[in-house]
Amino acid sequence: MATRTSPSRRQHTAQQPGPEVVASIPPVPVTAEAARLGFLAWMRQERHAAANTVEAYTHALAGFLGFLTQHLGKEPDLAALAALRAADIRAWLASLSNAGLVAASRAQHLSAVRGFFRYLDRRHGLEIPAIRLVATARVRPGLPRALTVEQACDVTQHVDDVSDDPALQARDVALFSLLYGSGLRIAEALGLDVRDAATLRTSQTLTVTGKGSKTRIVPVLPAVCAAIEAWLAVHPDAQPGSPLFLGARGKRLDPAVAQRVLRTYRRLAGLPEHATPHALRHSFATHLLAGGGDLRSIQDLLGHASLSTTQRYTAVDDAALLAVWRKTHPRA
């Protein structure tokens, strides 16, 4: 005989959410620190944010919550965040200024906090109205500092003076030749694997992955192809899946090591202090523009999302022309 279910029993059962409904509701974090960790995990796993972006947000938010702990007298919870006043956030920005952070860095820290608060609002329904009352200071971007053609070529031709190891010499020449010859970011170059260099023999191009995991194809000069081939000839582990640029311990080369190599060389060669790996990318764009390259093409080569970013190099070119005029014109 079938068992009959009473109406009250059926009603109670129907009101219970299924397991898939429960799983879709994100748990509400108890503390601001737990919310911060959830936000960073969301950036990595769902937004697929670049490692450098996650690292910058990690540092900025840890500093923000650390300030609030001292400012409020206890570790903040979500209720404390919701109760923040604009004056509290401005006090944090003032502390950053007192610590020596320039306007651009303060704007980046504030952007991280805004992103964190948007996440809390959308994921957990926690509205923090105070953030809307704090304006971001206008930051005029500084002009990119490029090397001269002679200085950039000097780096690519003589950076091997830093090391006595022939393999490291070949690696450094290949790396810095690629940065200047193709305008890559240091992270893009160090993210390449040996298999990525296979296209150099057929098309003299590389496919690189830039910001936001966007890929682009960049041409590679014959001299740079030759430098990379020379490095591959002495590469300790030239398997297709191995990193193209290795450190002394056989791991993927760390950006800090590349920066240290160039810092050592610029002191040996008497180059200016702004001779960094990123300055080689600036030099690539500046020298292309000076040679008649159009902005749209340079934008594609650099992987800029916005043309306005690339337009900064026109100001560099204009500033260089003005400097020449002031130096050489008899009435200047």
Results as ranks from 00 to 15, higher is better:
G181E: 03
Q204M: 15
E150K: 11
V224I: 12
K211I: 02
A189M: 01
R201L: 14
A137S: 14
P219C: 13
D121Y: 09
G183Y: 03
V208S: 01
L200F: 06
E188H: 02
Q169K: 12
V220H: 05
C153I: 13
L178I: 02
I186D: 01
R132P: 00
T136A: 13
A112E: 02
L221F: 07
D196P: 03
C225Q: 12
R106L: 09
D154E: 14
R123F: 05
F117C: 07
A107D: 12
V149A: 09
V220L: 08
R138P: 06
A137K: 14
A223L: 15
A107E: 13
P144V: 09
L175F: 05
A226C: 04
D193R: 11
A223Q: 12
D160N: 08
H158W: 10
A174D: 08
L175R: 03
I186L: 15
A152F: 03
T209M: 14
Q157G: 07
G125Y: 02
R140Q: 15
S182H: 02
R122D: 07
Q204P: 00
A226R: 12
C225I: 05
G191Y: 05
A135C: 01
D165I: 06
A226P: 02
A223E: 14
P129S: 06
E127H: 13
A104F: 07
V220W: 07
T199I: 05
A170G: 08
R140K: 15
P219D: 12
V149D: 04
P141S: 11
P141K: 14
R132I: 11
L190F: 09
I128R: 01
I217V: 15
V113G: 07
H124F: 09
G210D: 04
V139E: 14
A130Q: 05
P129M: 06
L184A: 04
S203A: 15
R145Y: 00
F116A: 06
S163V: 07
A137I: 14
T205N: 09
D165P: 03
R138D: 11
D172W: 11
R145Q: 14
V218A: 08
L126P: 00
V208C: 06
S182V: 01
H109W: 10
A187D: 14
T156D: 01
V113M: 09
Q169T: 04
L133R: 14
A226V: 04
V194A: 02
V149I: 12
R118G: 09
D161S: 15
F117G: 00
A107R: 13
F117L: 15
A130V: 07
D165F: 01
C225W: 00
Y119Q: 01
A227L: 09
Q157W: 12
A146I: 01
G115N: 01
S203E: 15
R118D: 08
D165W: 00
K214F: 08
H158V: 06
T209R: 12
I131S: 05
V139G: 12
